[in-house]
Measured scan of single mutants.
Amino acid sequence: AVSDRLIGRKGVVMEAISPQNSALVKVDGETWRATSGTVLDVGEEVSVKAIEGVKLVVEKLE
């Protein structure tokens, strides 16, 4: 799938994300809905860990 190429890519949080709420991230110039197990604020850099349906699963870039 096209989205599989995004695993391992870096992105930027466009809307705050919490474990209860998905929000938008920008990866390679494209906007995607994403979820995370932690709270992520706007502007934080993230890494794509997986794809669940049409959502990216991201975590904060260390």
Rank of each mutant, 00 (worst) to 15 (best):
G29C: 10
A1D: 10
V27H: 02
G8C: 08
A50D: 06
E59Y: 05
E45S: 08
R5K: 09
E52Y: 10
K60T: 06
V25W: 00
E30D: 07
A34T: 07
P19Y: 11
A1M: 12
E30P: 00
I17G: 15
V46D: 00
V57D: 02
S3W: 11
M14N: 00
I17K: 13
N21T: 10
E62G: 12
E30H: 09
S47N: 09
G29W: 03
G37C: 14
K10R: 12
M14C: 09
S47I: 15
A34M: 03
G8R: 04
V57H: 06
E30L: 09
D4T: 13
V13E: 00
A1I: 11
K10D: 04
A16G: 08
K60S: 07
R33C: 15
S22V: 12
E45T: 11
G53Q: 04
P19A: 12
M14A: 05
E52V: 12
D41S: 14
I51W: 07
W32Q: 00
Q20C: 14
P19N: 11
S3Q: 09
K26C: 15
V2D: 09
T35K: 07
V46G: 01
G29H: 05
S3K: 09
A23P: 07
S36V: 04
L56Q: 00
T38K: 07
Q20G: 15
N21M: 11
A50W: 07
G37Y: 14
G43C: 14
L24T: 07
R9A: 07
S47A: 09
E45N: 07
G37M: 14
L6R: 03
V13S: 02
R5H: 09
S36C: 14
V48Q: 00
Q20F: 13
L6S: 00
K10E: 05
D28G: 07
E15S: 11
L6K: 01
A23Q: 05
V39Q: 12
E44A: 09
D4G: 10
Q20L: 11
I51G: 01
K26H: 08
K60M: 04
V42H: 03
S47W: 15
A50Q: 05
V58Y: 01
G29R: 03
G8Q: 02
A50C: 08
I51M: 06
D4V: 12
G29Y: 04
V2A: 11
A50P: 00
V42F: 05
G11C: 06
V39I: 11
L6T: 02
S36T: 05
V39M: 12
S47G: 05
V58T: 01
V58R: 00
Q20E: 11
L40N: 00
V42N: 02
K49R: 10
V2C: 12
D41A: 14
E30N: 07
V27I: 13
S3C: 11
R33L: 15
E62F: 12
G37F: 14
E44I: 08
A50T: 06
Q20R: 10
V39R: 12
W32A: 00
E15K: 09
K10M: 08
A50G: 11
L40E: 01
V25P: 01
S3A: 11
I51V: 10
S22A: 11
G11S: 01
S18I: 07
G37T: 14
E15G: 08
T31A: 07
K55W: 15
S18H: 09
G53S: 04
